[in-house]
Design a protein around this nucleic acid. Structure first.
Lengths: 236, 236
DNA sequence: TACCTGCCACGAACGATGTTCCCGTGGTCA
DNA sequence: TGACCACGGGAACATCGTTCGTGGCAGGTA
C-alpha cells in the first residue's frame, strides 16, 4: 500500500528451522540435488536420506514429488542424456562422427559416477534419449548403413558405452581412479601374470605387455572402432 | 566293538534343531547354497539372510567363512566362469570359434540371473578366468590377430558379454522375460514410436520395424559379429 | 471472517539389509 | 580336568526405502 514499506518480521517470530533459507520442494529441485550428490559422492552414496539431508528435509518429503527411488534415477538418467550432443550428418565421414560422438557420450556418462548402471536396460523413450537416437540414426543412414543394421547398431553401441562407463565407476569405487592408484594396481596384476606357470598359460605369459597396455580411454576407443569397422562391412 | 551295533540315540535326547539334517558350514557349502538361491530367485533376492535361511543358520554364521558379501559374489563369479568352455584353436575358423564361444559364454552367464553384474570390473585372476582368457587368446593368436589387438579384444568382448547378460537379467526383473510379456512391452514401445511426430523424428518413425526387430539373442550375436568383423580388419 | 478442503512437509515407524559383538558349546590338547 | 580355540548364531547396530499419520498452511467458499 502507498507509503508503507515491507519490513521483515520481528526476530522473535521463529521460523521452522528447515524453512529458513530454502526453496519449496519440487521434482526439479530434488533431481538437481540428487545430481549434485551423485557427482560429489557417486551412485552408492546416493540415498533418499542423503538427498533429503541436502534439502534440509526428511526423506519422506521426497515421495510427494517422485514415486520412488527408481523414478528418481530415471529422471537423473534423462538429465544426463540431455547433456549428450550429437552432430549433424556429414555422410563422407560417418564413421569418424560415430566414433567421436560415442566418445563424447561416454565422457558425459563418466562425469556422473555410476549413473550409467541406472541407464542399462532402458529402451529410449525420454525426450533426450529420443533426440540422441534420432541424431545418431541420421548419421548412420546418411552413411549408407542398411536400416536393420543401423537399428541394432544403435542398441549395441549404447550398451557398450554404458557398460564401459559403469565399469569405470566400479574401478573408481574400488580406489583405482587416480593414475597412481591405477598404476599400483596394474603393477600387482602384471607381477601376478608374470608369475603364472608358462606351461599352463603360454599365451598369457607371453603377452603380458599387450594385455596391460593402455588406459581406459584407449580401450574404450578401441571397442568403438571395432564396432564401427564391423558395421562398415555391412555397407555396400 | 565286537558284538555291539550302532543304535540311534534315544528319542528324548534332543538335538539342536538346526543341527538336524545338515552338514557343517564351509565356504564351498555357502557358495553352493548361494548359487541355488541365485538361480531360483535372481541376484536381487540373494542376501546373507536368505542364504543363511537355506542353510538353517543365522546370517552371522556365514562370516566365519566369507569376509563379506562382496567376497561371496566373487566366489560365485569364479564358479560361473568355471562353467564356460572354450575350444582348442582351429586357425582357419578363428572368427566362427570366437562367435560360438562368446555366445556359449553369454548363455552360461544368463543361466545365473544377474551375476554378470558382479563380474563387471573384475580383471581375470581366478583360475577359471585365467583358463578362459588363455584359451580365447590362443584362438586369436592362431588366427593371426596381432597381440595388442588380441589383448584388448579379450577385454572388450568380455565387457560386452557381461553387459548384455546383465541387461538381460534387468529385463527379466522387470517382468519382460516371457515371450508374451516381452511382446506386450515391445508393442507398447512400437505404438509409442509410431506416435512420435514425424517431423521431429523422421528417421526413428521411418524405421520402427528395424529398431524393434529381433530378440535379445539376435542382437547379442549381431554385436559379437560387429566386434569380430572389426577385429578381422586388423589381421593382415 | 470463519470454516473447510486439499496438499505438502516430515517425524515416526516398519520391514529389510550387511555386518559386528558377544556368548555358548564342543572339541582338542596338555 | 582345565584351558584354549574355533565355530555357530542370537542380539544388536547402523543404514536403507518406503508407508503411515498428523500438523500446518494456503486457497476457496459461504
Amino acid at each position: 500500500m502507498t507509503g508503507t514499506t515491507e519490513i521483515p518480521p520481528p526476530p522473535w517470530r521463529r521460523m521452522k528451522k528447515s524453512a529458513r533459507q530454502r526453496r519449496p520442494l519440487s521434482q526439479d529441485l530434488i533431481v538437481d540435488t540428487a545430481m549434485r550428490v551423485l557427482d560429489a559422492e557417486g551412485l552408492d552414496a546416493l540415498s533418499m536420506r542423503r538427498v533429503a539431508l541436502d534439502l534440509r528435509t526428511g526423506p519422506a518429503s521426497l515421495y510427494a514429488h517422485v514415486a520412488n527411488k527408481d523414478e528418481l534415477l530415471e529422471l537423473m538418467v534423462d538429465r544426463v542424456v540431455g547433456e549428450i550432443e550429437v552432430p549433424s550428418p556429414e555422410p563422407g565421414r560417418w564413421k569418424e562422427q560415430i566414433v567421436e560422438s560415442a566418445l563424447a557420450a561416454h565422457h558425459v556418462w563418466t562425469r556422473h559416477p555410476g549413473i550409467a548402471r541406472a541407464a542399462l536396460a532402458n529402451i529410449p523413450v525420454g525426450p533426450n534419449s529420443l533426440a540422441y537416437g534420432e541424431a545418431t540414426l541420421a548419421i548412420l543412414r546418411a552413411g549408407g548403413v542398411p536400416d536393420q543394421q543401423a537399428g541394432w547398431f544403435l542398441d549395441r553401441l549404447s550398451l557398450y558405452i554404458l557398460a564401459d562407463a559403469f565399469e569405470e565407476s566400479l574401478h573408481r569405487e574400488r580406489g583405482r581412479d587416480t593414475e597412481e592408484d591405477a598404476r599400483a594396481y596394474f603393477e600387482q596384476i602384471r607381477a601376478y601374470y608374470e608369475s603364472l606357470p608358462a606351461d599352463r598359460f603360454p599365451v598369457i605369459t607371453s603377452m603380458v605387455g599387450p594385455l596391460l597396455a593402455g588406459g581406459g580411454d584407449e580401450r574404450m576407443r578401441f571397442g568403438v572402432e571395432l564396432l564401427v569397422r564391423g558395421l562398415a562391412t555391412y555397407v555396400e
